[in-house]
Amino acid sequence: MSKYGVIAKFDNPQSLVHAAEKVRDEGFTKFDCHSPFPIHGMDDAMGLKRSKLGYVIGAMGLTGALFGFGLQTWIHSIEYPMNISGKPYFAYPAYAIITFELMVLFSAFGAVFGMMFFNRIPRFHHPVFYSEKFSDVSSDAFYVSIEIDDPKYDESGVIDFLKNIGGTEIEVLTDEN
């Protein structure tokens, strides 16, 4: 039986944001605030930096655009120059559409798969799933979780701290298998 961390329930989005601020100020780093929907202002409350996903999407979009334009140029100017109704081989205005479409396509892949990469999903096992009650988080519950590999982690201290900041139904995550 091994332990993974502590979770505590909060009543509503406001108290979760206030709790996040206190956990951040206490110096914890390996913690998370779980809610059924994204909460406005939570990133600042938790002290999170801006997501780097935008750079990934930008790079992917640029790759897509260059690939699209390059592909068309290569096909019609290098690989098989073919005279079709007298159009120029390097008809760059006509390449705009496919360049744009591939830019969008690559950016969308960048957005979705980049999001999965940063979120480390798919990941079907996670200590928080050891708690029965935690499953309410996808409906109407608000939880703070602090993980055991946080440098400031000390079980009884963390439990007291979460109690002090208004957490209820505090549970130590344990693997029962």
């Binding site: 779980h34 939570m42 999170l48 999903i121």
Partner: peptide, 13 residues
């Protein structure tokens, strides 16, 4: 995909 509604996930999401 193992979604757990943490803000560290919502942020990128």
């Amino acid at each position: 995909l193992g979604w757990r509604g943490g803000n560290r996930q919502w942020q990128h999401y």
